[in-house]
Simulated scan of single mutants.
Amino acid sequence: MGYYELTAKTTLLLCLVLGAAAVAGCSTPPSNNILRQVPAVYVFSDSTLDVGNNYLPGKNVPRADRPYYGIDMPGSSKPNRRFISIYSATITELYRMGPRMFAIINVGLAGCLPIARVLSATGACSDSRNKLAAGFNDALRSLLAGLPGRLPGLAYPLADSYGIMATVFADPLESGFTDVSSACSTGRLGVGGCQVTSTVCANHDQHYF
């Protein structure tokens, strides 16, 4: 059970926790008279791939160094405020459509992903990337804490992907992993890319990535 399996199970747990509440809440229409047709839980999570696709061609591709995606500006050490504003705007817009319950997963240890480790000669985690992730999570937590005051009835759990990864990485064997640094693929630290000729390791269940 690796990174994506853990994320999926965390999401499923959040949905189960909110499921009964969502069903119970579907009988109460929102103030703008838009009736909720189906009880639902909206899940927001980070992505290690989709945000800031600087390698794709095209002027309309979201990029990490342009509004409104990605890091602030190159060379900045501040956690991104654009993502925070996008979270706020998206939740508010959905709220106006009727939803009242959201499940949100914060950003994990971005500096410990193999794609970050491979940039280090020793394969160590990137402290700067982890600090950026932690800074974003602090800003996200603060944002969410203030939303119910202006969006009555809003309910959300915030899953701590960052904390889960830190716990697993501190004692991998306790969680059944023998490798939490490299991906189960080809190339240094498994960061050789997904190619037709790529092979995966035999003990992939023991790899976090």
Rank of each mutant, 00 (worst) to 15 (best):
T90E: 10
G52C: 14
S47A: 12
F44S: 10
T7R: 11
R129V: 02
A202L: 10
F177Q: 06
A21Q: 00
V43W: 01
L14Y: 00
A202M: 08
A24S: 08
D179P: 13
R100K: 10
T186A: 15
V107I: 04
A8P: 02
G19F: 00
A116K: 04
N60R: 13
P29Q: 01
A124V: 01
Y3Q: 10
A110N: 07
G190D: 04
E93C: 09
L13Q: 06
V191L: 03
A134E: 06
A116C: 01
T90W: 07
T7Q: 14
E174Y: 10
S161T: 13
A40W: 02
E174W: 08
S128T: 15
S120G: 03
K9D: 11
C112I: 12
T122M: 06
S175F: 15
Y68Q: 14
M73S: 13
A24I: 00
S77E: 06
H207M: 05
G153T: 05
E5I: 11
G70L: 10
D171A: 07
K59S: 13
L16I: 01
N33R: 09
L119A: 08
I84G: 03
M1N: 15
A24R: 05
S185H: 11
S126L: 05
N80I: 12
C201A: 08
T90F: 04
I71S: 15
N60V: 10
R82K: 15
F177M: 04
L173C: 10
G190R: 02
T167P: 08
L132M: 07
A133H: 03
D50W: 13
D46P: 14
C201D: 10
S47G: 11
I104W: 05
I105F: 03
S120I: 03
G2Y: 07
T197R: 04
L154V: 07
I86A: 15
S142H: 13
N60F: 13
P114V: 08
P57N: 04
A40K: 03
L151R: 04
G187L: 03
E93Q: 01
G149V: 09
R66F: 11
C201I: 04
P29G: 01
L6W: 13
F136E: 03
L109C: 05
L154F: 03
R141S: 02
C15M: 00
C26Q: 09
T186H: 07
A22L: 10
N137Y: 06
C15S: 00
A155P: 04
G146F: 01
L189M: 14
G176V: 13
M1Y: 14
L140M: 07
R150M: 11
D171W: 08
V168H: 15
V118R: 12
L113S: 05
N33S: 11
D127F: 00
E174Q: 15
D205H: 14
S88Y: 05
L18C: 02
L143H: 06
P39I: 06
L13E: 08
K78D: 14
G192C: 11
S181F: 07
A145M: 09
E5L: 12
L173G: 06
R129H: 02
P30G: 00
G123F: 09
D50E: 11
S182Y: 12
S182G: 14
P57C: 05
Y42R: 04
C15V: 00
G108H: 05
A166G: 02
S47L: 07
A110G: 12
G190P: 03
G70R: 09
T90M: 13
F83C: 15
F169G: 09
T11R: 05
C125W: 04
G149H: 14
T90N: 12
P67F: 15
P114R: 09
N60I: 10
L6H: 13
